[in-house]
Design a protein around this nucleic acid. Structure first.
Lengths: 234, 234
DNA sequence: CGCTCAATTGAGGAGTATCAATGATTGTGG
DNA sequence: CCACAATCATTGATACTCCTCAATTGAGCG
């Protein structure tokens, strides 16, 4: 959500709202989010979780990133033939082409708004980089801990959540498709984390009773673990 | 290189040059590229290959992306504690903070220049997404083919190269750190590709005698293979 | 000619995938 | 209210990909 990246005036917030046009489209789980690259389409997630990623011909699936309510998805970010955007849960989206137009033209944009947009994009880019590191060099156990921490931090930033409670409306299948694992191994890894007292997973939510233990399990340096712990308090 | 993304007037090109300030810094292989996030630093690669990535405490290394001559690196892209930027080959860079400033303020920018910058950033983002897919769902064999094709396509876009010849100043160690493999397995995978008649690797360069075969090995759909083959002719 | 660095090879093991089956839960129509 | 289907989670067994360790070869290079 843009407003989480900069202090925006209420007129800024109004302006943002003005860029989102109905009608809201409803997307069932698994349903595609229509985005036409040639038209420089953009949509904002109003409700539910949305995946950006690829579906290979042989059935392999890889989720590249998640878009949560308030996040804007640009068509140009998924230009590739085998790249797609689809709903993971029941979701709805609004047209945000006007926002993208406004940014393209640079006009009609308060400095703060521009800064918020840049930070949103920058945060997405950083998450992509972290995702690469997870998939390239972390074990299944580390990957899972790392992802859960990232999601928890992301939700904390958006608003107050119960400490240690992560809203996680994803099946183990979906988690596997994020982390590049088989569903079976995803399941076993979650069990390992549960036995270690770090994660209690159920469809819909996960409880993280020991954040610093989880950070340790994620293979992060101690410095990072502390920094993360600090962020969680935000 | 920005000029590869849009038709720019010579005055545009001059303006770009004006944003790059000496002195050029020389970086030995492995040497860090200094970027200070708090100062909104930016540098442009003048010579050599540069890696963006992470070096974990236990020695594991993951390269998230490559920056080639002409590419601009923003400090804000590597804000993370465990994220770093370093030279892979002998390299040199120039300060590009002025470019970043100009973009931030939006002023002094011709529409074409802005478009070129956006496309550069968009291409980087797309490569990141592809990298995630490679690491998450492709086998070592597929990954390697996929990466070599991407590098070949990237170089073709920059300028005429001998057909089928890829300039590749990376050791197998470095390739392994890009693809999330051990150096030993990297070696064996390259041998597999050689035996299949798809890649002839030597330090400094690789020969790709059969691009469509390579595309097939990369696990791409036929449609993609054809599209890629077309692009190579650019 | 001995360095050093990169590439290569072999052997054994850890991590993860695949296949197949079984529970558990939830929603649905009879 | 029950039978049924559908989805998700779980388990066991086995195979394979890839890693690790250790050693060797080959290629510059002072």
């Amino acid at each position: 959500m843009l407003s989480s990246f900069a202090v925006l005036s209420s007129s800024d917030v109004d302006r943002i709202r003005g860029w989102f046009r109905g009608p809201a489209l409803a997307h069932p789980p698994g349903g595609p989010i229509p985005l036409h690259p040639e038209r420089k389409d953009a949509r904002v997630v109003a409700r539910g979780w949305v995946a950006r990623g690829a579906m290979l011909e042989d059935g392999r699936r890889q989720i590249v990133g998640l878009s949560l309510p308030g996040d804007v998805i640009l068509a140009t970010d998924s230009v590739d033939a085998d790249m797609a955007v689809w709903a993971l849960t029941d979701a709805s989206t609004l047209d945000a082409t006007l926002l993208w137009d406004a940014i393209s033209e640079g006009a009609d944009f308060s400095p703060r708004l521009l800064e918020a947009w840049r930070q949103f994009r920058s945060a997405e880019r950083l998450r992509l980089a972290r995702h690469v590191i997870r998939l390239g060099r972390l074990s299944a156990y580390e990957r899972t801990a790392h992802l859960l921490l990232e999601l928890y931090e992301r939700q904390s930033r958006l608003g107050a959540v119960e400490p240690g409670v992560l809203h996680l409306p994803l099946t183990q299948d979906m988690l596997a498709d994020i982390l590049g694992l088989s569903a079976v191994h995803m399941n076993r890894t979650l069990q390992q984390l549960r036995r270690a007292g770090l994660v209690d997973y159920r469809t819909g939510r996960a409880i993280l009773p020991d954040l610093s233990g989880l950070a340790l399990a994620a293979g992060l340096s101690i410095a990072d673990a502390l920094a993360d712990a600090r962020n969680f308090g935000d």
